[in-house]
Design a protein around this nucleic acid. Structure first.
Length: 457
RNA sequence: GGCCCGUUCGUCUAGUGGCCUAGGACGUCGCCCUUUCAAGGCGAAGAUCACCGGUCCGAAUCCGGUACGGGCUACCA
């Protein structure tokens, strides 16, 4: 077999969707695990909806995640696969034929078939048009579409192939019926274009979402009719919404890869998370890097059933990788922006308490912003606050060790329990029931600010 | 309607005829640690393996059917 080569073929009609990333991840892991190549083919033929910024978003997202491709991205629009030449070839060989039925006629036919409880399929009537009929259609000014012939001469009774994930799959060509490959306006349909593109790009393994499973028999026959080598096919389980209702859609949080990045997620976490959707590590490892996924990837371990997105698990993984030291640049940048030269001091306090970078604002905002008005749990909070306010100006030097020592002294003489005492100070200073370790917080706030907050409360 | 695919704790999954009184992870709950919240440690609850039948000494695992879900059945991709 020639060298393995896979492709990812996103359309730049929107930001790169996390479902596409999942497919690309599996393509990538498979290809890299056998030393193969990955190509990026931008399917930008939908001129109405394409935007150049989405091309950038796609490249940006994949690069961020470490899902690299070989060579330059190919743009479907910029090359001239001669689709019509191949269509011509199929016409000549009798593998395809011109069909003069209008969309309205086909629609009516379909409805009539359905009404009779029959399978709605094209009759194949135009396979053999009499010269008179042909003349009549032409006289009417009809433009033909091109249909691929699924049955008859040279066609198997049964289309069988080994899916990399699903194993042996069988189809009866009779059930599929002749389908259009070139529209009457000469534009090309997906099933046809895809075969020619993949062949032109020397793709050896087509790995895509499960929804393409039933496209496969059509494409296999096109490959054969054109005399192309048929690639291997592997179909991946779809990703469902968190409630398992339907395919992943935008309604549920961020669906675009770069939106996950904006929300503070780490590439390591996204990769690990997506990798555990529909695939499992052979040693049962719950945490794995892209490299580890590559080295242990096999289609045997790819699941056949769809998986729902579980954002809580993503958060867990993100927190894990954050603590492991992933993506320090983004974290450090955020800390520096918020806390300036105190960033290094705040970081260790924060790292165990957040699951993503954007959680910092809610948790540590009080260190740089005015806190909300606290609701004290301890009824005699005034006593605690005044005792503390009295002591604070005398604490010197203003270090957390010294602050702790001094305030513990005050507490022990106060007849207030340590919990009530220190939680009250924490609440006064942070305006919240949740705050970073108290003495560190006070040190960072500074003597003056601490006093101000105690007195105001 | 026809064809194709799927169905193990709430979620992601392990499992390829006996090691399964079904394992792990997230989440949930409890305990420890602790001035709060986390992190960490320990523990608990949670799955009649969709259902029904069959094969077998023995089935989550093999076979058949049913139900449910998804896909295709387009001059969509």
């Amino acid at each position: 077999m020639s060298k393995v080569r896979v492709r990812q073929a996103p359309s730049p009609t929107g930001k790169l969707h996390i479902g596409n990333v999942h497919t690309f991840l599996f393509n990538y892991c498979f290809a890299r695990s056998v030393g193969g190549e990955v190509m990026l083919r931008i399917e930008d033929t939908d001129q109405a909806r394409n935007k150049p910024e989405y091309v950038e978003d796609i490249k940006d997202a994949l690069t961020w995640l470490g899902l690299t491709w070989d060579g330059e991205p190919e743009f479907q629009s910029k090359r001239h696969n001669n689709y019509s030449e191949f269509a011509e070839q199929l016409l000549k060989s009798g593998d395809a034929y011109q069909c003069y039925h209008s969309a309205e006629e086909l629609d009516a036919e379909r409805k009539a078939q359905e009404a009779k409880g029959q399978a709605p399929r094209y009759s194949g009537e135009c396979r053999q048009l009499s010269p008179e009929q042909l003349e009549k259609y032409r006289a009417e000014g009809r433009k033909p579409a091109i249909r691929f012939r699924m049955t008859g001469e040279g066609r198997p009774k049964e289309i069988t192939y080994q899916d990399l994930v699903y194993g042996q799959i069988k189809y009866d060509p009779e059930d599929i019926g002749d389908f259009v490959i070139v529209r009457s306006d000469n534009s090309i349909l997906y099933n046809f274009a895809n075969v020619i593109d993949d062949h032109g790009d020397h793709i050896t393994h087509v790995i895509r979402g499960q929804s393409h499973l039933t496209n496969t028999p059509r494409q296999i026959l096109i490959y054969q009719a054109l005399g192309f080598d048929v690639p291997e096919f592997g179909h991946l389980p779809e990703i469902l919404n968190p409630d398992r209702v339907g395919k992943l859609s935008k309604r549920y949080g961020a669906a675009a890869a770069t939106e996950f990045r904006a929300k503070g997620y780490l590439p390591e976490a996204i990769v690990n998370f997506l990798g555990s959707l529909g695939w499992s590590h052979p040693q049962g490892q719950e945490f794995f890097t892209l490299g580890e996924m590559v080295s242990s990837f096999s289609f045997e371990r790819v699941s056949k059933s769809p998986a729902a997105l579980d954002l809580e698990k993503l958060d867990f993984l993100n927190a894990h990788y954050l603590r492991q030291g992933g993506n320090q640049e983004a974290l450090d940048a955020k800390l520096a922006q918020m806390f300036g030269d105190k960033a290094a001091q705040v970081k260790p306090l924060l790292i165990d308490r957040i699951s993503k970078i954007t959680d910092i604002d809610a948790l540590a905002g009080y260190l740089i912003n005015d806190p909300a008005k606290p609701k004290f749990k301890f009824s005699d909070f005034n006593k605690v606050l005044s005792l503390t306010a009295l002591k604070v100006p005398k604490i010197d030097p203003w270090t957390k060790e010294n602050i702790e020592k001094s305030l513990r002294e005050v507490q022990s003489k106060s007849e207030v329990g340590p919990k009530d005492f220190f939680v009250t100070i924490g609440q006064a200073v942070s305006g919240s029931d949740i705050f970073l370790p108290l003495f560190d917080s006070l040190e960072i706030l500074g003597q003056e600010e601490t006093l101000k907050r105690l007195q105001r409360s």
